[in-house]
Design a binder for these strands. Structure first.
Lengths: 229, 229
DNA sequence: CACCGTATATTAACACTGTAAATTTATCAG
DNA sequence: CTGATAAATTTACAGTGTTAATATACGGTG
């Protein structure tokens, strides 16, 4: 049924397309992603891509899902490099990993959180994967909550109308309690704000190694949300 | 065809181009901005635009500058609607204005802080205008500093190599002391993070009117930076 | 007034882009 | 061998930003 590769053909064209797409995003930026250029680079005709991806948006969606997965895994690994008992250290490591990933792969970060692709609208299928990218942070917050070390004073609750969406998010992020997801979103906002401004070169580097602002913010976050029991 | 007589021509074509560009950004989104579509809408040939803007990027740059100016003015007005003596109220009003502007004109916000235009790179000339958009916040922080009510404990300093840029920023934002600019950038990051996630619909609405998370964050910001003297 | 330079518009064309249709090629199942 | 089918091809269409050459109208000067 599936036409096995002829020797002269490109083996695993679907993967090659993705690889070249990433390479071109690094070279010329996410906005310049071009199916024709990808095909040209691989040495295949442009419509051949359509046998593996429905259209350009489908390719972009795959790239986004890959990026989310990479971001999520990176944070999970950083979290697990700190002993489970050191809850503050785990929170710190997760945040630092988020920033490190974004700075190391700025094109992927902008692909996810910017809107660099003309006319692209993310389909619903990316939501679970997006949730996965918050799993590390949520788990740390959950752990703090379980240890009765999470300051949830005055944190707001989701609008009733948005409760279904919130519940889905809670499932995908594996948040044990809604408070954990809410606090995770708050922290995510702070981290994302600094990181996106940093990537866009909208703010100068601070401290000795350029992470001064971020370290300060991580400390402030820990101070605000971790009760000293 | 022949060039229409003057009275039949579009008066103030340069302004018309900008107006139609904004209208199209609202209609179809910033990513779909098209010179040909703009010209079509106005009823003029596409290359006519090039008599008023060097290329598409030049048009985008003017749009960005206009957006920054609008964002800056909006915050200044909000700040001035609160008596000068109420420093906490002024901080709060400025932050709320930032969010309100972004939600009211999401295309403009994404035009500034997203990267929706294919291949567009912001030229250096937007920097002063970008600085202007921080003026309201900076002035409020400056006022707190002058009243000895600003908590600057442990805030980081800019990297020596970035000091020239920082100084230019300080001038454009009219920050009286560097600490004020640093704190303003920190607050900007937090506000920007929540707002950009909100606009991207990455986070659900909280509270009764949808601004629950933001209000909570503004309170936390005030608590962190304003000393109770 | 006539003339000319300049600003502003025009059409035509080039090199791109994503994508659809029709067609060929290569491999498998029966 | 004979289809069937998946995967690749060529061709074509509609759209984009941009440039070149060209035509028109207006403002200032002789």
């Amino acid at each position: 049924m599936v036409r096995p590769k002829k020797h002269a053909q490109v083996p695993n064209l679907k993967e090659s397309i993705k690889d070249v797409a990433w390479q071109q995003m690094v070279d010329v930026g996410a906005a310049e992603l071009s199916l024709r250029a990808i095909a040209r680079e691989i040495g295949v005709s442009t419509p051949a891509i359509y046998n593996h991806y429905a259209d350009r948006d489908a390719l972009v969606t795959t790239l986004i899902i890959d990026a989310y997965t990479s971001l999520g895994d990176y944070q999970l690994a950083a979290r697990d490099s700190v002993p489970q008992s050191d809850r503050r250290g785990r929170l710190h490591a997760t945040g630092m990993a988020y920033r490190a990933w974004a700075l190391a792969k700025p094109q992927r970060y902008q692909l996810i959180f910017g809107t660099p692709i003309s006319g692209y609208q993310a389909p619903a299928e990316v939501m679970p994967v997006a949730g996965r990218s918050l799993r590390a942070l949520v788990s740390v917050i959950d752990q703090l909550y379980a240890a009765n070390a999470l300051n949830t004073a005055a944190i707001p609750t989701v609008m009733p109308v948005a409760l279904p969406i919130f519940t889905v998010w809670q499932q995908h992020t594996e948040a044990k309690v809604p408070e954990a997801l809410t606090v995770a979103i708050m922290i995510w906002g702070r981290v994302h704000g600094l990181v996106s401004l940093e990537i866009a070169r909208s703010i100068p580097p601070f401290g000795e190694t350029g992470d001064g602002l971020f370290m300060y913010e991580m400390d402030a976050i820990a101070q605000q949300y971790i009760t000293h029991t």
